[in-house]
Nucleic acid binder design. Structure first.
Lengths: 174, 174
DNA sequence: GTCATGGTTCAAAAAATATTGAAACTTAGA
DNA sequence: TCTAAGTTTCAATATTTTTTGAACCATGAC
């Protein structure tokens, strides 16, 4: 159902216009792609992050595009996504209009943000839905076992919703 | 990148051959589909689980197929998946060769199993990979900051690998 | 204001994933 | 052994997701 089996190399049919990834950057990218897949993040986003992660200096839009050999569109969308989840930061050399990107200091914090942004909205959306499910099941006289299951489900959902912010406060420092 | 926006109803173009889902079963199915999407489980699998979860009695292959209006292939593969992750159990009315399916008692345990099965293999696979990355980065004299990041990454990976079984032992009871 | 650099948008194309269903397999019972 | 119910397999198809790239927008330098 998942497990992006070893298409590691095959993703590399890319025409990196210049300065292609070194072997270790490549393997690191594969690592990030693999992990990203588990939480539903696309390969191009994972690659961008990996590249920045392995870079000693902040990189510009063009450098990212050039080294990964992906389209402008992918770079733009990828940076937007990473920005949105606070996983990267930009700086500008002064006198230049060009942004330079680097990963935020804590990868752990980044992952937590990402997870929260995926999970919490789904939980929030679900709360009223489960409420309705339970109500309807009750009025329709579903069996006691089923009602019990549905109550438990609703309980867990709201539990998760209140616990998440506690376990992982908005701006973790680790 | 995710968020399976409200195609709730649209998935319902299905020709349920008979006895289609009741409104609350439907909404529950949508809930499970939404949650399943986050961890990369397909809609048909989520629907099967939802149906069993909302059913007071164990259901046969044919009942599942009929009520959801999906193909034999999907039912077979879905049950295989759920079985494989210990999320459902079968019983047989004696004198019958037909299996009847129901969810395992603890949904929490099921989810943990599922997560473990997705995450742990990826972490295991990654350990040697990160080892190589770090070695190569060292021999190639990557910058101290990058080396530091890579060390941290490797550390986290092995940390997660040893922690996971502790946090969620093989057969949790909750 | 104009222009060129830097970046975004989004419809179309490509790639990945999920679903279907007909054929094949398995096995309990006659 | 033969049969048929019950299930699995897997190549073909449908659907969804990701990527591309040309057209468009924004803004700082002049």
């Amino acid at each position: 159902m998942k497990l992006p089996s070893e298409k590691a190399a095959s993703r590399r049919k890319k025409r990196a216009t210049f300065d292609p990834l070194s072997p270790y950057e490549l393997e690191l990218a594969d690592f990030f792609v693999r992990m990203a897949g588990i939480i539903g993040v696309s390969p191009s986003v994972a690659e961008i992050y990996a590249l920045l992660y392995a870079s000693p200096k902040a990189l510009s839009f063009d450098e990212i595009q050039g080294r990964l050999g992906i389209s402008k569109g992918s770079v733009s969308q990828g940076l937007k996504f990473l920005r949105g989840h606070e996983m990267i930061l930009s700086t500008k050399d002064k006198g230049s209009r060009r942004e330079k990107w680097q990963p935020t200091p804590s990868l752990a914090a980044s992952i937590v943000t990402l997870l929260r942004n995926q999970v919490v909205p789904a939980l929030e959306f679900s709360a009223p839905s489960l409420e309705r499910v339970l109500n309807q099941a009750e009025t329709v006289h579903a069996s006691p076992e089923v009602l019990e299951r549905l109550r438990k489900l609703k309980h867990w959902n709201s539990r998760a919703l209140e616990l998440f912010p506690l376990l992982f406060p908005s701006a973790p420092k680790a």
